[in-house]
Nucleic acid binder design. Sequence first.
DNA 1: CAATAATATAACGGTACCGTAACGAAAATA
DNA 2: TATTTTCGTTACGGTACCGTTATATTATTG
Lengths: 119, 119
Amino acid sequence: MAAEPNPQGALHFWHHVALDTVHDDDADLSARQLAILLTIYLETPPHTVRGLAGKLGVTKPVITRALNTLGVMGLCARRRDQSDKRNVLIRRTVDGTLYLDRLAANLVKNAHRLTAWNG
Amino acid sequence: MAAEPNPQGALHFWHHVALDTVHDDDADLSARQLAILLTIYLETPPHTVRGLAGKLGVTKPVITRALNTLGVMGLCARRRDQSDKRNVLIRRTVDGTLYLDRLAANLVKNAHRLTAWNG
DNA sequence: CAATAATATAACGGTACCGTAACGAAAATA
DNA sequence: TATTTTCGTTACGGTACCGTTATATTATTG
């Protein structure tokens, strides 16, 4: 097998990850929602609506709506910033951590396909 | 750096890929649509609505709607099966190939993050 | 204190998805 | 030939997203 990731392997990798994601319908997040969720969990706090909107290059209502959905799913939570009450700070949750743990496991499980010359 | 893919690296990898995907809004495909597209391009033809529905574990109208969207985007095309005119066969297109080429390049570009111990 | 700016959200119209159910066309079967 | 089965699509009601615009709340500035 090849040692380096290659385009063909990358597509097979993505294919299996996507099939797993679709199959065990954990939560059908859009690309934007997932990008927001990962930003919250991987980048250093604090996270605000404005900050997330700027980082993703979308408008603020997009972030508000995504946080509504993610909040209902229990994947993150909101809290008023007490030092500047215009701000809303986004907190992580246990369920969100578990969700990303499952996603990470799915990725690691399929990672070997990246370097395969065919699949 | 670590030699093996690990959960933390996997999430950072996915984060960068998602941000790239959101930023250059090539086409905002859902997880299902992308799974369908990859199945069409990576698995051996012929592909039918029923076959795709079974493989992804979804209903046929889901496939029909996804093919409508992918067709409008030019990422795949439909053709009547002349030997059994109830069937619709899904064909690949040049634009679909180019789209997946870009996706693969994005994945390969970020693949090194999978094995990083932190990001 | 009054006026302005900044923040997040709500409201609006439009679009697209979902699952279920019904439908027409074609094939298989009796 | 008449009936049943299979296949893909359409229709329906419901939900959620999008971008734009307007609003309420809070800070800041004059």
